[in-house]
């Protein structure tokens, strides 16, 4: 078998409604999935934003994924008034820091990621309850009832162009889940609205790139979504097949199906 792997823009992320601990959590949980194999057996890289590094033009190369630094995370939490006590992390008011992560039952990688986040945050004293739900209930909670605290889900880019992500970044968009169904709730969301519209209404690629780079920076700073990993796409092609040239977008192996042929030896044996 010939193997071929590429990074693709398929990202798994953690969505929070608890902005106070966002950045610290990214320090404490972000990179565990690709280190030492981990859940994805080394076939992933820590993610930093909505674009995979494989998308070389649109990826903002200035952004770097946070390394796994639980001590730094705890320090930042303490600077914000959180403090550990008897193995639990308490906020300024003395409340135990606890939240739930929902994900879709049946997705083993996401459930395992949730378990790893649970373990990592447990080291800081943060109690995490992992709740797999059937997909319909999960989507209902996230997109209709807004009755959840954090969710692990995956986005798949249908397009290399950032305009394909308008359904997420515009504050009025349907999938803008953190401040849903309203006008810009915050100044930075208003800024993203402006930049996304600007990049979509010009034909100058450099200007568009500049606008979308800024969007990626704002997302990294404000962290409405914690991007966890960029998964590799693995394609396996039989040695009997010639002409395979897997790409990074779906269908990775079959995009040139008209050029795939069996080699001479295989044809002769049939």
């Amino acid at each position: 078998m010939n193997g071929n792997k590429n990074r693709v823009g398929r990202r798994t992320f953690l969505r929070f409604l608890l902005p106070c601990v966002l950045l610290c959590l990214s320090l404490a949980s972000g990179s565990a999935f690709s280190q030492n194999g981990g859940e994805l057996h080394g076939h992933a890289q820590p993610a930093v934003g909505p674009v995979s590094p494989a998308n070389k033009f649109w990826f903002n190369s200035k952004l770097k994924a946070d390394p796994y630094r639980p001590d730094a995370a705890l320090e930042r939490l303490q600077n914000d008034g959180f403090h550990p006590q008897n193995g639990a992390l308490l906020d300024k008011a003395g409340n135990v820091v606890e939240f739930s992560i929902v994900t879709n039952a049946g997705s083993k990688p996401r459930e395992r990621m949730a378990v790893m986040v649970q373990e990592d945050l447990g080291k800081l004293g943060i109690k995490v309850n992992v709740v797999p739900l059937d997909f319909r209930s999960l989507i209902e909670r996230i997109s209709q009832k807004f009755n959840y605290e954090a969710a692990i889900l995956g986005f798949r880019n249908v397009d290399l162009d950032p305009s394909g992500q308008m359904n997420i970044w515009l504050s009025s968009a349907e999938d803008h889940a953190w401040n849903p169904q309203q006008k810009p709730e915050t100044a930075w969301e208003g800024e993203i609205d402006r930049l996304m519209r600007a990049q979509a209404s010009t034909t100058d690629p450099n200007q568009r790139k500049q606008n979308f780079d800024r969007v990626q920076e704002i997302v990294a700073e404000q962290a409405p979504i914690l991007y966890l990993v960029n998964q590799n796409a693995l394609s396996a092609v039989s040695a009997a097949v010639e002409g395979a040239n897997p790409g990074i977008l779906t269908p990775q192996t079959f995009w040139n199906a008209e050029r795939l042929t069996l080699n001479a030896t295989t044809r002769a044996s049939r």
Partner: peptide
């Protein structure tokens, strides 16, 4: 088996 049983861990 469906992932809806006992909660992790």
């Amino acid at each position: 088996i469906l992932g809806l049983g006992v909660a992790e861990p």
